[in-house]
């Protein structure tokens, strides 16, 4: 395995700097954002590297639980931040976070215990990256789907209420919109699975191959991860949409858009 030196990384950083200079020259207004994001990547990943190093040295369920919780809360915040119209009160954060917790943690634990079978099952070398992969992708799916659901419900409130007036239940009145939201939440992972290996080499597999793993081993892990991600995203999105669609109505089947905040920056 060829290890990377600080000089190697600096050379790659020069490319980002060059891009920032170009963007500044063309007045795209992106250079600031680009540099901040690049700096964040360095700092956050270095910190995580240190944390993982410490974690691998002290294998304890409590430590794993702690870092899992931090990851979950960060993902939950991200889902909330991406909503144009989020639910008011604790629901804004709790809904997406709860759905991610249920699907990602359930699938991660199931996989660790039954498929990977490390000893102990929470061996951080497997548990942390697996959960990270699951959370990251489930987060994307849920954020997209929730945003689609609430934005469409807002735009089409007259149609939803028309269906209610004609005697539809809340479930019938929102079912088309929920189906659309489900599609937009699942589309990224379905696309990723369809083109995997043809158009793109998935990042995880690429990393493993670069780090010296035999390609077929890397491929097997990648297939496992893809399946887990699609299941995790699917169950997570389903749970989030089920909760959100319920939350949009009250027990008398009235559309209650007052459960949503108005969007920011409007």
């Amino acid at each position: 395995m060829i290890t990377l030196s600080a000089l190697d990384l600096s050379l790659a950083a020069c490319l980002v700097l060059a891009l920032a200079a170009l963007s500044w020259r063309m007045r795209l207004g992106l250079s600031g954002q680009l540099l901040v994001a690049a700096a964040r990547t360095v700092v956050q990943l270095l910190l995580v590297g240190l944390v993982l190093k410490a974690l691998f040295a002290h294998v304890h369920l409590l430590w794993i639980g702690g870092i899992s919780l931090v990851m979950l809360l960060a993902a939950g915040r991200e889902v909330m931040a991406r909503q144009q119209r989020r639910f008011t009160g604790g629901w804004g954060f709790g809904l997406g976070t709860g759905a991610m917790f249920v699907s990602s943690f359930a699938i991660a634990i199931l996989t660790l215990v039954t498929i990977i079978g490390a000893d102990p099952w929470y061996e951080p070398q497997y548990a942390v990256p697996l959960l990270g992969m699951l959370l990251g992708n489930t987060m994307n799916g849920i954020a997209l789907a929730l945003d689609r659901l609430t934005a469409t419900a807002w735009q089409q409130r007259a149609v939803i209420e028309q269906r209610l007036m004609l005697g539809a239940t809340r479930h019938e009145a929102i079912t088309d919109i929920r189906r659309e939201a489900m599609r937009s939440g699942m589309m990224p992972i379905i696309n990723a699975m369809s083109v995997a290996g043809l158009v793109s080499l998935p990042g995880m597999m690429t990393g493993q191959i670069l780090a010296g793993s035999p390609p077929v081993e890397a491929v097997k892990y990648q297939i496992l991860i893809m399946f887990l991600i699609s299941a995790g995203t699917g169950f997570g999105v389903t749970t989030a949409l089920w909760l959100a669609a319920k939350r949009l109505f009250d027990e008398r089947h009235r559309l209650r858009l007052d459960t949503l905040n108005s969007p920011r920056n409007y």
Binding site: L164, M165, L166, G167, T169, H253, R254
Partner: peptide, 13 residues
């Protein structure tokens, strides 16, 4: 149930 009520009491918007 509300849906049943709205089938009996029909609002034409």
């Amino acid at each position: 149930p509300a849906p049943q009520w709205r089938r009996r009491v029909s609002l034409l918007p």
